[in-house]
Every structure is written in C-alpha cells, then in structure tokens.
C-alpha cells in the first residue's frame, strides 16, 4: 500500500468535477420538492440535457451554447411533466417515472448520429492570482466555469428561499397549498415555474457529464446519476447547504475509493460504494427520530383550486 501516492490536491480537484453533475441536478430537484412537487424524472431530464448539450456544442463549436441548449431542453421536457401533473392532475410518481423512460429513449434517438464524436470542452479557468496560489490554486481555483456556477447556484437558491418574498411563497406552496391558495397565491403557477427550474438544472447537470466530465456522448451515460440526485435531496433534508455537502460526499466517496484502490489500499469496495446510501438511511432515521423530518408537508400531493 502506498497512500503517499494519493495527492490531496488532485483528489479534491477530481471530487469537485465528479460531484458537479449531481450537485446541479439535486439543487434543482430540491427547489421542485420545496414547492411540493415530486419529480422522479431527474434521470430522464439529465440524459436529455446530456445529449442535447452535446449535439449543440458539437454543431456550434461552443460548449457554453451547449449548456444553454441543455438547460432549455431539460426545462422543455419538465414542462410536459408540469402540464400532466399540474393541469391534468396525473399521479406525480408515475408521471416522473414515465419522464425518465421518455428521456432515456428520446436521448438515444437524438444521440445516434453523435456516437463516437468528440466535443469541444470547457477550458479550465485561469483566475488571476487565485489560480497561481500554491496548493489551493490547483485544488480549488483552476476548474472550468460550470463548477463555480454550480456553487453560485447553491448560494442563490439558499438566499432565494431564505430571504426573498418569492422564496417564502414557494415554500408556503410546498408546505400547505390550500393555505397558499386561500391567501391568493397562484399555486399551479409557482409549481410550474419550480418544475421548469428543476428541469433546467437537471439538463445542465447532464450536459456537464457529456461535455466536461466524460466528455463524449454514450447512450445511457448518466447511469443512475439522476437517482443519486434524488437521494441527495432526502439526505440534505431539503436544505441547500446540505445539498452541497451531500453531492460532494456522494461524489467524493466514489472518487476516494477509486483512488484508494489505485494506491493499493485494501478497501472493501462494495461497502464504500454503498456508504452514501447507508448514510442517507441513517440521516433519515435521525431526522425522523427527532420528529421533524424536513419534508415539505404538501410534497407529492396534487392540488386543484376546487378542492
């Protein structure tokens, strides 16, 4: 065993990259769930974002354009979910699962011509002064712009939910849609917008996979990342700060165990791989033992103004 061959600098840098897709998807899904909607279609929206982002980046030569297109594609797909669940009052769980299946099928259809093609990828930023700092420069300040945007997004979501009036309304809709409706807030409109936001974030997360992390298009390439994002929302008990912790933990454990193996450490791989899920279950036990489970009270309940 030679643990000395693991460089902490490279390890942290690699964790940040590895966690970014699930961070983006999870922060979006958290806002959706805060508004009282459970969208299980994260995986489908992510992979649609991955393929659309890739296609647009290849055709335009600009990865940023790819990200924008991916966000729009994710939002577009989620609007189908929003229409079905908010206006036609379909079951959210079933519709979300359907969305995942649609996304997977649609993406492999769109992606056929893009297999085996390379895409332009995001350059690593060279931030003046910061990037040149010893150790932390390489570790924290020489990533591509999406890593920082994802962190910024977490801060924005946190501030939005905590300090703004709109954030308060969104939370009210998620806690008790009847009360919010009685106060004159447009429950369906708020939820519709939240769902679109969640879709856009999932699309960005998917595009980060296909444009930066892997970077190529392969059918089924999200390989369950959307479900991990859903687990992170629960793990975080619907708080933005903890989403960040959760995403870096989930991403970190994977990267860490691979690094430990490569260094020759004798680690129980299966146990380490399962550990984020075990921790999620533990967190659930702890929060339910404390009595406050943190889930929005109206989560996954359908709303119609007549009822």
């Amino acid at each position: 065993m030679d643990l000395g061959s693991i460089s902490v600098v490279l390890l942290v840098a690699s964790i940040m990259v590895s966690a970014t897709p699930i961070l983006l998807a999870a922060i979006g899904e958290m806002v959706v769930e805060k508004a009282g909607v459970l969208n299980l279609g994260v995986e489908g929206m992510m992979i649609t974002g991955a393929v659309v982002g890739f296609a647009f980046a290849v055709n335009s030569g600009s990865p940023m354009f790819g990200f924008v297109a991916a966000a729009l594609a994710g939002a577009l797909l989620s609007s189908a979910f929003a229409l079905l669940t908010q206006f036609l009052l379909s079951n959210q769980v079933a519709t979300g699962l359907g969305l995942t299946l649609v996304g997977l099928g649609l993406s492999s259809l769109i992606g056929k011509p893009y297999e085996g093609i390379k895409s332009p990828t995001l350059p690593k930023l060279d931030i003046p002064i910061l990037s040149d700092l010893p150790v932390v420069g390489r570790m924290l300040f020489s990533h591509d712009i999406m890593v920082y945007l994802s962190l910024l997004l977490v801060v924005c979501v946190w501030a939005f939910l905590k300090y703004t009036r709109a954030g308060l309304i969104l939370r009210a809709v998620g806690e008790s849609h009847d009360s919010a409706h009685a106060l004159g807030y447009r429950v369906v409109r708020v939820r519709f917008l939240a769902i679109l936001f969640g879709g856009a974030c999932a699309g960005l997360g998917g595009a980060y996979l296909s444009l930066v992390r892997v970077p190529q298009w392969t059918e089924g390439m999200t390989a369950g990342a959307g479900w991990i994002a859903l687990a992170i929302v629960v793990f975080a008990s619907w708080r933005a700060g903890r989403i960040l912790v959760g995403a870096y933990l989930f991403g970190g454990v994977t990267v860490l165990q691979l690094n430990l193996q490569a260094a020759g450490a004798n680690v129980p791989v299966a146990l380490l791989s399962a550990s984020p899920y075990l921790i999620t279950i533990l967190v659930l036990i702890v929060i339910s033992a404390r009595g406050a489970h943190g889930a929005p009270a109206s989560l996954a309940r359908p709303f119609h103004a007549s009822s």
Partner: peptide, 8 residues
C-alpha cells in the same frame, strides 16, 4: 457500463 465512473 458507467461512463462517468469509468472516467473517474
């Protein structure tokens, strides 16, 4: 098959 994990 898990491209992200294989890349990691």
């Amino acid at each position: 098959f898990d491209p992200a994990k294989e890349a990691d």
